[in-house]
């Protein structure tokens, strides 16, 4: 006995986003960049640290956005890739004595491999099953990191303390500020890479798979390859973000990378607008600052505030920040017209 499912009448797992709608124009991009460069010069060290975290989470959300918005696959397990990246950097720095900047590509490559391998079984899964498998991955990760066998390397439950790098070449800036610009440079490189990736042949293959897998394979796209590739790329970028996170926070511990982090990143993507890459930074700002405000109101409330806001976004602005951007664009267009 078998059930037949009509795939044509069935809604796609993720709403199709046209390629052009995925990025910002040059003018706006430059304005945002100038803003990101200028702001740290005006604020205190603690705020600079928060801005660094903002960029780091933005990169992680961007990675999820490539996977979901680009290739239409889910992941509730991004925290696992983030954790692997963070631990790779931390272990290389503390046990291997390797320069922090050099640990990032290693974290990226290791996570790419991990994601690519995890993508293999995930190939058989779609939609909700994939969400399930990655959900299980995210919940299992902290236990794997606490494992006695790796305790020498990972520091077990205690975690590892990472030393914060100084600014090189005797540059007259604080550690926080140097780290911010370092992160900004890497985030920018990753952003440009991602935009170009989605505009390339591979990017078009991702989107074809997202919109209709069977039609895509009929057009000659190697569905298996591109789906695992999307997983690998997404995991790799998340790994770099994780590595940066470890350097910025100066500490890695299993319980920093629970399912809550994965949920945050997922939420960031939904708030920022699925498939709209610049939205990642909006989503990241949301997941960094909203819990602070919620915790300020009452401890333990942040989960409820998160959930309620997520529902509001789903119902009122299903396209997230992209919808806001479209409205602004229309307004500017009208002003120019007059």
């Amino acid at each position: 006995m078998s059930a037949i499912e009509e795939t044509v009448t069935e809604a796609a797992a993720v709403e199709a986003v046209p390629k052009k709608a995925m990025t910002l124009g040059y003018g706006t991009s430059l304005a945002v960049l100038v803003l990101l460069i200028a702001v740290p010069l005006l604020v205190k060290n603690f705020i600079i640290f928060q801005l660094t975290m903002l960029l780091i989470y933005a990169v992680a959300v961007l990675a999820l956005n490539i996977l979901t918005g680009g290739s239409g696959q889910f992941s509730l397990g991004q925290s696992a890739f983030y954790a692997v990246g963070a631990y790779t950097s931390a272990i290389l720095m503390e046990h291997g004595g390797i320069n922090y900047a050099l640990t990032l590509p290693v974290a990226g490559v290791i996570c790419f491999g991990f994601g690519f391998l995890f993508g293999q079984p995930a190939l058989r899964l779609s939609g909700v099953y994939l969400a399930l498998a990655t959900f299980a991955l995210a919940t299992a990760m902290p236990q794997l990191l606490k494992l006695g066998a790796f305790e020498y390397w990972t520091g077990g439950v205690q975690g590892l303390v990472v030393t914060k790098p100084d600014a090189p070449f005797g540059l007259p800036m604080s550690q926080d500020m140097w780290l911010y610009y370092f992160t900004l440079a890497i985030s920018l490189a990753i952003y440009i890479f991602s935009v170009n990736l989605l505009r390339s042949r591979s990017g078009r293959a991702f989107m074809a798979i997202r919109d209709n897998e069977i039609a895509a394979s009929a057009m000659g796209i190697d569905v298996a390859l591109y789906k695992t590739l999307a997983f690998g790329v997404s995991a790799g970028i998340t790994g770099v973000a994780g590595g940066l996170g470890a350097i910025a926070v100066q500490f890695v511990a299993p319980d920093s990378y629970t399912i809550a982090l994965a949920i945050s990143l997922f939420l960031g993507m939904v708030v920022g607008g699925v498939g709209w890459l610049p939205g990642s930074i909006v989503g990241s700002a949301f997941i960094i600052f909203v819990p602070n405000i919620a915790e300020g109101i009452s401890k333990g409330l942040s989960g409820a505030v998160f959930g309620v806001l997520l529902f509001l976004v789903i119902f009122l602005v299903p396209h997230g920040a992209r919808q806001g951007a479209i409205v602004v664009q229309h307004l500017i267009g009208k002003l120019r017209g007059n």
């Binding site: 809604a11 796609a12 797992a13 993720v14 709403e15 979901t68 889910f74 509730l76 939609g127 909700v128 969400a131 949920i263 997922f266 939420l267 939904v270 699925v274 333990g300 409330l301 942040s302 989960g303 409820a304 505030v305 998160f306 959930g307 309620v308 997520l310 529902f311 789903i314 299903p318």
Partner: peptide
């Protein structure tokens, strides 16, 4: 009628609200 993604987001939201 929404895409699966939206539904999964809804479940996650519910999870977070109920737990908190």
């Amino acid at each position: 009628k929404a895409p699966i993604l939206t539904n999964v987001a809804g479940f996650i939201a519910l999870y977070s609200i109920v737990n908190s």
